[in-house]
């Protein structure tokens, strides 16, 4: 930053910073709350599934081709980047992710931003849409607001 004749200038290139704007979690939270209140919870689920299908198509393609390692790699990368905490276990063709610190919920709470108990439906619906498109199934058990959950993923024909 360079102050000169009462003029302050800040000039940055993309490479000067890491792309990590956690307040986007808050914007998504407001989006979910708005859809819930304006259109109802079924519409929110419809939107989140559309997000899964339309914006995670590279993950869907990789999941079809490479299997569960795709999801393990993807979520490990996210949790490392956003400083979350989770245990990953892949056994008997089932990937289990035990999240002990959801980075999104941790950020929202630390900043005092809006948190809706329905936020974790993002995980439920986006994961469902990705898995459905790739021939997999999943579950997500969570208690609203705890920032903890257990996510499981398995191939459609397998019973878990």
């Amino acid at each position: 930053m360079s102050p000169k004749n009462n003029i302050r200038i800040l000039e940055l290139n993309s490479s000067d910073n890491e792309y990590l704007h956690k307040d986007f979690h808050g914007a998504l939270c407001y989006g979910i709350k708005y859809l819930d209140q304006t259109y109802g919870q079924d519409t929110t689920a419809e939107y989140l599934k559309q997000v899964g299908r339309e914006t995670f198509s590279p993950i869907i393609a990789a999941l079809k081709k490479e299997g569960l390692i795709t999801l393990e790699r993807h979520f490990k990368q996210i949790f490392e980047l956003e400083n979350g905490e989770a245990e990953f276990k892949c056994e008997d063709n089932c990937l289990v992710i035990k999240v002990s610190k959801c980075p999104a919920i941790a950020h929202l709470k630390s900043k005092g931003q809006l948190f809706t108990d329905r936020y974790c439906e993002t995980t439920v619906n986006v994961n469902t849409a990705i898995c459905h498109a790739a021939g997999y199934q999943c579950s997500c058990e969570y208690k609203p607001g705890e920032g903890k959950c257990v996510q499981k993923f398995w191939k459609k024909d397998d019973t878990k």
Partner: peptide
């Protein structure tokens, strides 16, 4: 969870979704 690094496509999708609705 959608990572904050994955938010923008979801945001754009929200605008498309809302336009489809109303």
């Amino acid at each position: 969870m959608i990572s904050c690094t994955e938010f923008i496509p979801a945001y754009s999708e929200l605008f498309k979704f809302l336009e489809q609705k109303g």
